[in-house]
């Protein structure tokens, strides 16, 4: 128990590092010629990174048998939301300076902003229903169905990045590949659950659970 608390604290602090780095660079004058662009890109990529780490909890847990990993998942997901908020605020405040007209035009006219904005909106209900109380109120089934939105959100996040870059799509492609692996795992697991005999051979109870707790 005590080890886990320590571990959780360590993960909590590690997830703060990207923000601390930005603050440190900001004070040290290390954000380059276009600091607002730097902060926008940095908070955006860390949102995506946190989403991918959150999505890797289930596959990792299944493959390693480390079931305690799931107890880190809420925090990781909330960090994704935290960096998404920073990203969003950077755009609204530093980039557009609350020019609502320009923002509305951007969201309506530019596909990459439309997609990014939608992904951010979809993250909100997940963050709001992340507490134990909310889970109880919703019921496990509905809660799980709602939180599957994260697949859509992460996909939208990668598309948002992909459509943003001018030409060199290496970076978004790497995030896209990681996401494809993580979602692909779930597809295979789900197929396995539906027809265990076809995919997994002898349907031992332990194997069936492979798909039962996918999130």
């Amino acid at each position: 128990m005590k080890t886990f608390t320590l571990l959780k604290t360590a993960v909590f602090l590690a997830c703060l590092l990207p923000l601390l780095r930005l603050v440190w660079l900001g004070f040290a004058g290390g954000l380059g010629a276009n600091p607002i662009e730097f902060v926008t890109h940095s908070t955006g990529t860390w949102t995506l990174a946190c989403l991918l780490v959150t999505l890797s909890v289930t596959p990792l847990r299944r493959l390693s048998g480390w079931h305690w990993l799931v107890r880190l998942r809420r925090m990781l997901g909330l960090y994704a939301f935290f960096y998404a908020c920073l990203h969003f605020v950077t755009y609204i405040w530093l980039d557009q300076f609350f020019d609502l007209h320009a923002i509305a035009k951007d969201v309506a006219k530019r596909p990459f902003i439309t997609v990014g904005f939608a992904a951010f909106l979809l993250l909100i209900p997940l963050a709001v229903t992340s507490s134990n109380a909310a889970t109880r109120r919703l019921g496990a089934r509905r809660w799980q169905r709602l939180h599957r939105l994260v697949y859509l959100i992460a996909t939208a996040g990668v598309v948002h990045y992909w459509w943003l870059v001018k030409k060199d799509i290496t970076q978004p492609a790497l995030y896209g590949a990681a996401l494809a692996v993580l979602l692909g795992y779930r597809v295979v697991a789900a197929l396995g659950k539906r027809r265990p005999s076809d995919f997994l051979g002898d349907p031992k109870p332990s194997r069936i659970r492979l798909g039962a707790c996918r999130t």
Binding site: A33, N34, I36, F97, A102, K105, D106, K109, R110
Partner: peptide
């Protein structure tokens, strides 16, 4: 005339905060 993926109405002068 906007770039198809972003607006060209404003610009950020490097070193300045407001567009």
């Amino acid at each position: 005339v906007d770039h198809p993926r972003w607006s060209q109405a404003k610009e950020r002068r490097i070193g300045e905060f407001f567009k």
